[in-house]
Design a protein around this nucleic acid. Structure first.
Lengths: 188, 188
DNA sequence: CAGTTTTTTCAGAACAGACTGAAAATTGGT
DNA sequence: ACCAATTTTCAGTCTGTTCTGAAAAAACTG
């Protein structure tokens, strides 16, 4: 009987590899400001490729019902996990998008809307009104506005690049992959 | 005497705008997993465009000496802040890179090395050894390897894209800006 | 409609990581 | 070599987040 309590190391090589991936994904997320559990649930659903209900998720990741519930809600809102109802089973089943490019696009789109767009607005409000009357605008003020301006320009340029990646057409399309590969080959 | 204690709101429109920028940068950083102080010190040096010593930084941002010292060390290591010694003054003076594209390139390069490269190694170790003997590899195992494999491929593709952005030639070069703008125009 | 199962919510516990402050180390001057 | 100015270090405190657990709500069943 080579195991003492709960979470173990080698039930099978497959489960073992899955656990490595889940742990890895969780660590990554932490360091990028995303809650660990969020990434772990997603990772579990992604690697297994199967649907799981809340209890299975709670059991495998050893997390509380509340945590699982809240996090699943968010994951579904973000659009990278789907909730499905099964006939004759009261519980909800969850599964993760299997196309990694769609996954990436979804996350990028979300972050863009939630962070980049508001950032641009806020940045613009850091400029100072320049030259109202003739000789008005001081050197210090215009230097300030140039700095903020170049910052804005850069963020806008990256924003345009990301829009290009996400494609002009709404949500769908896996053209993203080929686009990234093309971009990697553009000659300077 | 319209002010009570320490940090105030409107000493001058310029300082006011600077403070907005500093605060904004700090918030951004927090939400991306970078310590607030790190971003605030950098923001202060960037918007002011001037050199400052540790005491000036401590005073303006209302942070401790220890925090300032440690954070400045890190910023200098990252290469986005420079430390300079002035004749006849024992204190060190710090200033921030003013070229926003260089700034971005530096940060991107650092994160790439510190996170992407190790991530790829770790990801590879999440695959399972496949088909040793004839009929060996099970469906589950090969499905697993395909999922991990597609993940790896995507990260590699993005890695190549970032390398392209950073330019084949070492640190320097502000070709990055024009490259980003070009990429934004590539036709699918 | 009462009972049962599943999900949601949220106040507080537990935790992680940032920040402080004072002591130790370093640097420069005389 | 000594003293003064400055920087660095780090143990402990503090702050903000995430997670738990149990109670409330909702959803379904017979």
């Amino acid at each position: 009987m080579p195991q003492s309590s709960a979470a173990n190391s080698s039930p099978s090589p497959l489960v073992d590899a899955q656990d490595r991936f889940i742990g890895l994904w969780g660590d990554m997320a932490s360091s990028w400001g995303v809650p660990r559990t969020m990434a772990e649930i997603h990772a579990m659903l992604f690697v297994s490729g199967e649907e799981s209900n809340t209890d299975e998720i709670m059991a495998r990741l050893e997390i509380s019902r509340g945590n699982a519930s809240m996090t699943l809600r968010t994951l579904v809102e973000w659009g990278i996990v789907a909730r499905r109802h099964r006939r004759g089973d009261r519980r909800d089943y969850f599964s993760a998008e299997q196309d990694v490019w769609k996954l990436f696009a979804t996350v990028l789109r979300a972050r863009k809307r939630r962070e980049i767009d508001p950032l641009l607005d806020a940045l613009r409000s850091c400029s100072l009104p320049s030259g109202q009357s003739p000789n008005a605008t001081s050197d210090a003020t215009s230097a300030h506005n140039e700095r903020i301006g170049s910052m804005i320009e850069m963020v806008e340029a990256l924003d345009v690049l990301s829009e290009r990646l996400l494609g002009p057409t709404g949500p769908g399309s896996d053209r993203m992959e080929s686009l990234v590969r093309e971009l990697s080959e553009v000659e300077p």
